[in-house]
């Protein structure tokens, strides 16, 4: 197993299952206390990014660019997005627009 894939498994959550083509990992953004944690998340293209709302209040996840948007996330609701195009994706909660975060997508870790 190449080092990159091993590193991806170590850095990612248990759900990460590398396959022959690419190694993606599962990443989580916790929503609690009206904040996205971590506020800036680095991922590889294609990684599963899961947002989990721990607040009593509902929240949403909306990309400023319009690239992605969740529905309303109730308490304990989860929503997962995968972004294939590398770049910087600032996002906010449309119910509380002062809640902001950024996802930084790097080129996918290829395994050939």
């Amino acid at each position: 197993m190449p080092a990159a894939a091993a590193a991806a498994v170590l850095l990612g959550a248990a759900a990460a299952i590398p396959n022959a083509a690419t190694a993606t990992t599962a990443q989580t953004v916790e929503i609690s206390g009206f904040a996205f944690k971590p506020a800036v998340l680095d991922v590889a293209a294609g990684d599963a990014i899961t947002f989990v709302n721990h607040d009593q209040e509902a929240h949403t996840v909306v990309a400023q660019s319009g690239a992605f948007k969740s529905s309303g996330l109730d308490t304990n609701d989860q929503w997962t997005v995968r972004i294939s195009k590398p770049g910087k994706y600032p996002y906010f909660c449309s119910l509380h627009p002062y809640m902001k975060g950024t996802i930084v997508v790097r080129a996918a870790r290829g395994m050939h």
Binding site: A58, T60, K69, G72, S94, L95
Partner: peptide
């Protein structure tokens, strides 16, 4: 209110 417009 804003809760009535979720999902734009």
């Amino acid at each position: 209110g804003e809760h009535d417009f979720i999902g734009q």
